[in-house]
Design a protein around this nucleic acid. Structure first.
Lengths: 223, 223
DNA sequence: TAGATTGTTAATCGATTAACAATC
DNA sequence: TAGATTGTTAATCGATTAACAATC
């Protein structure tokens, strides 16, 4: 018991972590935040799993990638596990985010309250339309895209959100990368290609509806 | 070769289809639409996969769940495969959709051009705020939520989008279900529980950023 | 024809679940 | 203590990839 490489309490996993595990981690966190809000003290893997539609074994296995967070016979302390998962995901600190594109969707994102509560703050928005440049939307300044470099460096921005039309998405992403951004959330319905080392997550609203439509049309398989 | 249950050209799969396959189907469709727009005639599984970051074998296996769409030595005819996938997903027809909640995000969805191009049309919006009820946003009428039943039945609505605050999301979803909606796209950052037979897809913008943050923070594993 | 590429089977790989000793 | 629940190992299950005969 003393020759094995120890895991730190909220520490580094020893191997690579499956992507599916990380996405469940976010769901655990969201649920735990709700439980903490409702003053719940502890929760078992069985209960946490049931709330989200997972098995208890899955919950324990997922968490075990990162350390020993539970108490046999008790379960997990909600606030403690919440804090630990935030640390794992990196959202125990606030991340400054740059938004490119202040059309309909961009504006909605600027006003989205959910970000700040979860560790993100859009600190600046960028566009090419002279009508919006220089204005403030939801208290956030809109700059010309040419100011990206300056503003991004000043604010040490590592995350960007692309909310421009499909035709401009690749170019917008490249500008973000050129300025040191390491992760891009892309709302344009196109695949953007990025240099190795830069991660992208795409959100395509129509695709989400398509997935739903398929499951509605192809009745038969259970949920 | 004549005793096996035949697959129709764009027909029913013989077994259950993994969820991951369906989500890739949407990406194939999106890419094919782009290729068709650029007048490409045919595409091989190798090329289609490369454009999206999948192996050729994966592309062929995914499509083979639903039928024989390719031509050995040639590949797939882009427009033909596009049409076939639309049919599989159920988006060869236009789906009327109800939107509940016309806050920032709801308004952005009302103005989102991507839906109509992909087989969806928001035909009515619902809210509780008397300031917006009766108005038209982006050409779509906003009704009181109490009119949901009437409007939904008139328009034979089977899909709904929930864009209300977290606290109202479960109630909004239940109202949609009560009126016969079979699939719900939920933008509120909470898990909603639905009766069996009703499918839900959740889009949590903060969770997407969290996933990105994790991969940025935990450098090491390749993309 | 030769070259290209499919659909499919078998092999590999990875992820989920079941089971249980260890622990509080 | 007895009961509950963890972390972890082994067993199961499912998904991806490699390989190749069939086909154009």
């Amino acid at each position: 018991m003393d020759d094995a490489k120890p895991k730190s309490a909220a520490g580094e996993p020893d191997g690579p972590v499956p992507k599916a595990v990380v996405s469940r981690l976010s769901l655990y966190l969201r649920q735990l935040q709700q439980e903490v809000r409702e003053d719940r003290q502890t929760i078992s893997s069985k209960d946490l799993g049931a709330l989200l539609g997972f098995t208890d074994a899955q919950v324990r296995k997922d968490l075990a990638y990162f350390g020993h967070f539970g108490y046999p016979g008790i379960g997990y302390r909600c606030d403690e596990l919440m804090t630990a998962i935030k640390k794992i995901l990196g959202t125990d600190q606030q991340w400054p985010v740059a938004l490119v594109g202040v059309g309909n969707l961009g504006r909605a994102l600027l006003g989205y309250k959910g970000f700040s509560q979860r560790g993100f703050r859009i600190v600046a928005a960028f566009d090419m339309d002279p009508h919006v440049i220089g204005s403030e939307i939801e208290g956030i300044r809109v700059y010309h895209i040419d100011s990206l470099s300056e503003v991004a460096r000043e604010n040490r921005i590592r995350l960007g959100v692309v909310a421009v039309p499909s035709a401009s998405a690749q170019a917008a992403a490249e500008k973000l990368v050129a300025v040191g951004v390491e992760g891009i959330l892309n709302f344009a319905p196109v695949t953007i290609s990025l240099p190795p080392g830069v991660r992208a997550v795409g959100v395509d609203l129509a695709i989400e509806l398509e997935q739903l439509t398929f499951s509605v049309v192809s009745r038969g398989e259970p949920t």
